[in-house]
């Protein structure tokens, strides 16, 4: 009987073909990834692994370093450092505040820039202005704008008949919100450009179909725009979250963590410990804790995003 051999043949052939196909694809994938992988391995992974390893030592930045493996000692010490945990709380408020506001403000701007208004070219370039300002002067410029006396913001509020003596960066209540606003300002071009590029990718037919169905602006946003933009929103918020968490220099130059420690962020701690106290081992332990906290938070966020994604697709 030929049937079994035939069956065997038909079964084996695609398998073999799939095998070579997979191998070819893998080779192709490796070739495509390699150019990126090499610099990352040499200049990013290697230094990072060294730094991670330091977290388990008592390394100091001294002339003749002599240090040993201390296990989890650094982490035990860190657990008792109340300043570090306080600053972590402030850091998270700052990070979440900036990230959420950045997304909301940038989404609004990106939609406006994508809605066929006049002077689009000009406005799109103007929207990128914060990017063009060198970070070295961003903080100095905002300090001038916020200045309690002789600053344009208070002068403007005064001309509207509003109180014109708010000490934006010096008052305990307004310092953190004022700094968050600068954070939003700095990050907006990045987020806006990203979202705008995403909006451009949405096939126009989808919108046309929706408007033909009689959907209003809001309905079109929730039914077409938001779902299509979803992967990009997820990407940019995760990254913004990380960057905002890490951007201590802006806060530092604006307020030096003041007033009264209201704007002290945890990266500043790590910096002080690593460079000013030269306890690089202990500082590396702080870095590890920060990585764990951020990665955990992001894992929760990304998981919920992917789950929504799946249910949406299924539904």
């Amino acid at each position: 009987m030929t049937t079994p051999t035939l069956a065997e043949k038909t079964k084996a052939a695609p398998q073999r073909r799939r095998g070579t196909l997979v191998r070819a694809r893998r080779r192709e994938a490796i070739a495509l990834v390699m150019p990126s992988l090499i610099p990352i391995l040499v200049l990013s992974v290697a230094p990072l692994v060294v730094a991670l390893a330091l977290a388990f030592t008592d390394a100091r930045l001294v002339r003749n370093p002599d240090y040993e493996f201390v296990g989890l000692d650094n982490f035990g010490r860190l657990a008792g450092n109340s300043f570090f945990w306080d600053s972590l709380r402030i850091g998270l408020i700052w990070t979440v505040g900036v990230t959420v506001l950045q997304l909301a403000a940038s989404m609004g701007l990106a939609l406006l820039l994508n809605s066929g208004l006049r002077l689009q070219g000009l406005t799109r370039v103007l929207a990128l202005v914060p990017w063009a300002m060198p970070p070295v002067v961003v903080a100095i410029m905002w300090q001038m704008i916020y200045s309690a006396n002789g600053g344009p913001l208070n002068a403007f509020l005064g001309s509207l008949g509003l109180p014109d003596d708010t000490n934006w960066l010096g008052d305990f209540a307004t310092a953190l919100p004022a700094v968050i606003l600068v954070g939003v300002w700095v990050g907006m071009p990045q987020t806006t450009v990203t979202l705008l590029a995403g909006l451009q990718q949405i096939p126009a037919e989808l919108h046309e179909a929706a408007s033909m169905d009689g959907a209003g602006a809001w309905r079109r946003f929730t039914a077409v725009t938001w779902p299509s933009l979803r992967p990009i929103v997820t990407s940019i918020t995760s990254l913004n979250f990380i960057w905002n968490f890490n951007s201590f220099s802006l806060v530092y130059v604006l307020t030096e963590g003041g007033p009264g420690g209201r704007t002290m962020v945890p990266i500043l701690f790590t910096y002080l410990e690593a460079f000013k106290n030269r306890n690089i081992g202990y500082a590396a332990a702080m870095g590890v804790v920060l990585v764990i906290v951020i990665v955990l938070l992001l894992a929760i966020y990304l998981r919920s995003q992917f789950r929504d994604d799946r249910t949406e697709r299924r539904g």
Binding site: L43, P47, A51, F275, M286, G287, I294
Partner: peptide, 19 residues
């Protein structure tokens, strides 16, 4: 994600030496 979270101050020395 991890590469973006880890504070740069901690990476800069090994990086300098590799370079």
């Amino acid at each position: 994600l991890v590469s973006q979270v880890f504070p740069v101050v901690l990476v800069i020395l090994p990086l300098f030496l590799i370079l």
